[in-house]
Design a protein around this nucleic acid. Structure first.
Lengths: 237, 237
DNA sequence: CGTAAAATTGATATTTCTCAATGAGAGTGG
DNA sequence: CCACTCTCATTGAGAAATATCAATTTTACG
């Protein structure tokens, strides 16, 4: 069949083929809605390190992450950085109340996002309470995560932070690549440090220490959990 | 006029008289809706230190804080505590995705809440998208705040934390008691410490230091900002 | 008043950071 | 294919910030 004969989405993509169809905000839409929704989004590819949006920018779009990993962060005036989260496929970005983004987001490695202009998206959502509920659910899930992370930042030691991070990241990776004791770490040590409220040196030393104790093995592009139970004990729940 | 002659709400209260009518989740309701809504909530008073709900409890209600201050916190198994926020009148509590509360909440001083059973509240919301939007807005606002707090916890020094806390709390107090350089602090030093990821001793020492430098004055039940500009400079934006 | 809880202060310990050097891996051009 | 360079990661030594432990002092409350 010639491609030209097929009805195609505005960017040559079908939502129905989308990798995150079932997990993203779109999971609340039925087949009919999806066909209309399809026309609202456009796929955008970004290279490693590219910025999708910056804190304080006027926010004109929502984004659905389709592929890759993004870091979400805030900067202090003197350059100190706090990574407030990593986004994975299925995550929905761009919600805010002020009309401005409250954090910056950039690509870690190659990334594909589905971009929606705010106005048409807002119109689409208007009379679709189930979609609004879905968005609300995602926001509340984020909020949960944010609170967990506050506990980590405010009350855990460096060892606990690193252990909890490895377990948490492994958990999230499961959803993408399936259960495994090998944890891929696409982000840099500096990113990890800025996520955990530590310095890069402390993260590095903690990894080395865990490896010396036979708890993990540092491999190219990630780590392997040799003794997951020990890591869990270290994370202090 | 005899009280018995007046039509009264289910608990002898009118939403229309409610102190948080304009700021709370209810601000999205019109007069007609409010009369129906009135029957869903019941006012509950709590004494100092009483717990409204605990982390991991099955959540059966939503709460609208009417009067007083609450601390919202999470505990680690060994007892370390992180306060994830303070709730003030108008705040809406109890949203979650898991059906269980993800943090504990207790009263700091006397508190009045408006309690809504989840099921009827959920039914009421069902065909009222504006209320759902309002709830979503509150969740996103919370999320913003949570991210700001992550920056504080992960990347700020003790001095900066304390200064930022005083300014932030002053800002929130404005909404209740009007603009002033006197900042009431209804919570204990321990609460402040657990909110900022510090120890009580560090908080106390930082207050004392600020006072010695003539930046604040420690008064009964709060502090006075003698040099707000200095405090802002210390908070590092 | 007297007692308990909360807050402050001091002395010391510990953790994590900072600064500096070295090492390893990826990409580049000769 | 190999030096070269650049970035990122690791390691070490010492400094700084904050925690811990212990003792008062102050405040709240019956």
């Amino acid at each position: 069949m010639k491609p030209s004969l097929v009805t195609i989405g505005p960017n040559g993509h079908f939502c129905s083929d989308c990798a995150v169809r079932e997990s993203a905000v779109c999971s609340s839409l039925d087949a009919v809605e999806l066909r209309e929704f399809e026309h609202l989004g456009r796929r955008v590819r970004l290279g490693s390190g590219e910025t999708v949006f910056s804190e304080e920018d006027i926010s004109t779009s929502f984004y659905n992450l389709l592929e890759g990993v993004m870091r979400l962060y805030k900067l202090l005036p003197d350059g100190r950085r706090q990574i407030v989260g990593f986004a994975l496929p299925g995550d929905f970005l761009g919600m805010n109340v002020s009309g401005r983004h409250n954090f910056s987001a950039d690509a870690i490695g190659a990334v594909t996002v589905c971009q929606f202009a705010k106005t048409p998206f807002g119109r689409f959502i208007e009379d679709r309470a189930h979609l609004l509920r879905r968005i609300n659910e995602l926001a509340i899930r984020e909020l949960d995560h944010a609170r967990d992370h506050m506990v980590l930042l405010g009350r855990r030691s460096a060892d606990e932070k690193v252990a909890a991070f490895l377990l948490g990241w492994r958990e999230r990776s499961f959803a993408l690549k399936g259960r495994s004791d090998t944890v891929p770490l696409p982000m840099s040590r500096q990113d990890i440090a800025d996520y955990l409220g530590l310095t890069i040196e402390t993260v590095s030393r903690t990894f080395t220490k865990l490896e010396r104790h036979g708890v993990i093995e540092i491999i190219h592009g990630g780590i392997r959990l040799l003794d997951p139970a020990r890591v869990e004990a270290l994370a202090a729940a």
